[in-house]
Amino acid sequence: MTNVINTASAGNATDSSIPLIEMKNVVKRYGDFHALDGVSLQVRSGQRVVVCGPSGSGKSTLIRCLNQLEKHDAGEIRIDGRALSKLSSAELRRIRTDVGMVFQQFNLFPHLTVLENLTLGPMRTRKLSAQQADKLAREYLERVDIPEQADKYPRQLSGGQQQRVAIARSLCMEPKILLFDEPTSALDPEMIVEVLDVMVELAETGITMVVVTHEMGFANQVADTIVFMDGGKIVESNDPETFFSNPASERGKSFLRKILRH
């Protein structure tokens, strides 16, 4: 029962028979520490999964394994039906263009302008022409509401703007899945909203999202599934209403008590 948790039952049903993301008994160790201790998870196309849990529970490791920034030690991860551990590095690169990642620290390229940050991937890995990439980049800058910042350098922007550029950079790869690793945790409070707004809009476009966040308001509003992790394991996986009103697990209850106290 705890071994395989099918989150698709809580999500909007799509006709695709194979899940877009499938994790089976995934294990990731750092020395003796089990960051992921037998995690199984399925995400269907169009689902919006929020992963939460106390720090050190393995949620970041989970999504970092999904695009293989961390290689898992055991178990299987399939993206679009293809097992990641069996891919050559060229195939892995191709899969990575399907799996966008937004980082806590933005990780924009400081030596490139905003526009160049956005066009680098499309030009170098998707082999678009400069004009096509430029057009695409401006389109997505428009989408994240900062078209006027195209020619600035990242450090000239506020944290919120930088994170929106980072989201646009991921979108320029036109991925099937977007992963967010605590996208608002490094932001000043007044900038969190502008990033969350963009993410809410994205969710409405139907793109598949897996979001690690402490923003429970966002989770409640956008997620169709909440995955709660603790100690490298998925403790429970539920729709937001159930999770927030009546979490199935004791640890989920105590986590919510702490996080929602104020």
Binding site: S89, R93, R96, G100, M101, Q105, L108, F109, L120, S170
Partner: peptide
């Protein structure tokens, strides 16, 4: 983080 960002947009070793 720079390397990870480069990986995540599909750049290979030389890119």
């Amino acid at each position: 983080g720079q390397l990870e960002a480069a990986d995540s947009i599909g750049l290979g070793y030389f890119g």
